[in-house]
Design a binder for these strands. Sequence first.
DNA 1: TTGTAAGCGTTATCAG
DNA 2: CTGATAACGCTTACAA
Lengths: 341, 341
Amino acid sequence: MQKHSNKRRTTILDVAKKAGVSKTTVSRYLGKQYDELAADTRKKIEAAIEALDYKPNRMAAGLKGGRSYLIGMVVADITNPFTTKILHAAETLCRNKGYSLMVCNTNNDPQVERDYIFMLQSHRIDGLIINTTGKNNQFLTQMAEQKTSVVLVDRKIPELGFDSIGVDNITATEEAVQFLISKNYESIAFFSEPIDGVSTRRERLSAFQSVLAMHGNSSMQHVYEADFSQTLDLEDKLDHFLKSTKGKKRAIFSANGVVSLGLIKAMKKRGLVIPDDMAIIGFDDPDWAEIHTPALTTISQPTTAIGRTVIERVFKRIEGDTAPPKDIVLPAELLVRHSTI
Amino acid sequence: MQKHSNKRRTTILDVAKKAGVSKTTVSRYLGKQYDELAADTRKKIEAAIEALDYKPNRMAAGLKGGRSYLIGMVVADITNPFTTKILHAAETLCRNKGYSLMVCNTNNDPQVERDYIFMLQSHRIDGLIINTTGKNNQFLTQMAEQKTSVVLVDRKIPELGFDSIGVDNITATEEAVQFLISKNYESIAFFSEPIDGVSTRRERLSAFQSVLAMHGNSSMQHVYEADFSQTLDLEDKLDHFLKSTKGKKRAIFSANGVVSLGLIKAMKKRGLVIPDDMAIIGFDDPDWAEIHTPALTTISQPTTAIGRTVIERVFKRIEGDTAPPKDIVLPAELLVRHSTI
DNA sequence: TTGTAAGCGTTATCAG
DNA sequence: CTGATAACGCTTACAA
């Protein structure tokens, strides 16, 4: 049985009384304005806080002080290891700064994203880190106008004038596709979730296309956008690729880790052998890439660095930096393993 | 460049004026006490809110009303797919209820956990969902005394009197070990992170031991607690198992998905073939279990159900349910695949 | 059905 | 260095 005692929670006033000083003085202590406090008073306050087990009320502080110590983190898929690793890094730094993270998962649904934006606004978050669907630009702009610092992760939207952090998708994709070409693959497919204006996907696709345009004939190139909400769509598209490239040396460039997983499941189901029947190279480097048989050739994103950088940017903004928006581009790394020959 | 206009944010008073009613009336509208409102007034308020793009301030509401609409979720490893799936389910339900989730990752560090508990207390969270280290019981009790509803996930601590949600570790482990015995494995190892009082680990270990005690001779049973903070500890222990069971038909029972991953990496590094050189069966059913070669035999936990149930419990408590604590035990499922012969 | 007024627990302003 | 006192934006008796 949970007992909720109903004695009033102890407030700053209780502490003040116990320490024999005024609320104001205690508030100064809480605000770490130690230089304005006599060492002696400070000790008394410390003792009182300890004795009363006082926990300051952030809602009250926020109401008056205009700071919530809350950061919103809106992600598209919290189940994706890529997301999770960024989150992990971000979360640690937040804690060190005394901030808390409110995590929101949108499933790439613009309506859900919008609901979250409003909800976060109601909590008066100080900063917002968002992996956006790109369909709520207007609301993001509004947020920024109302004192929350917005930083984009992974996907960028230049018009918005926000800081953004991501990897160099163009270079990484070019490198991967060139690698495939150098291995004499004759038919190369690009598999992705629907591009739908998502910058990351668009960049990867266009790099894919431009490299192939330079090197091969157009029949070499196959682009598939699979709808993951329909169970069989990915498989159908894989079958299509299979049928239309009989006898060719085939490879797939997978636009992210989730797609890779789906693809591999489908291949396994069809008894396809990697890399003999079909090679695969994928963006993102999930834990299992290394233990898969054969080990997966991947493009690894510096997730920890992304997470750190993102948080650093938000805090810079929260602390008042008004420099022009930074578009931070980190390098991704091609890890050649054995799913490509 | 982020422009932060400094015009005062619009408040409930602005809405009241615009609608030609009082703050109170608007507040009633916000509190969805529609039956106390004339249809006409309600429309005027709606219009005013729309026109002014008013966003209620939860901090102010919370300060007065004693509800923060915040739920804290403290997990041990946000990078673990098991965690992430629960989180996903929990998060969705929270949104539907108008609550937000503050996610905190402890890395199983009691000090970090404590810091988070305090931080969450400062935000006056209405509910706490925690996968606890078990080393901060005193503080959890305090929280409950101060009107925060606490629910334990995965790991339980009966003395505390909180609701808890988890799977039937005993039965699931027994089933798995019996399965191994039925396949005539001669040496069976239990690999886990340090037991250290964590209920889940303790339950799995004791079920493992009791089944083997009934069936085999004591030399059949090997227990290893690996320290994952030391890179080579797991590998050393694997080598020890290997050396001490030469010529035997060997199997490993892995206590969770992270351990399984580490184990498989180590085996791969040593050129060990699963299941010929060594079988493996593991708690948790990560995405990659199915595509691994050979596909992994696992014990799958109903993560989505766990997430849903956890949230349901917290809300019940938040809404004032004072029934005795429920210890909810969900079934886990043995998925026999091919890492065991 | 609606309004008045008194807080909720802080911080900020201004004196001392 | 310290202390009154007025906000902050909302909810909730209590009235009307």
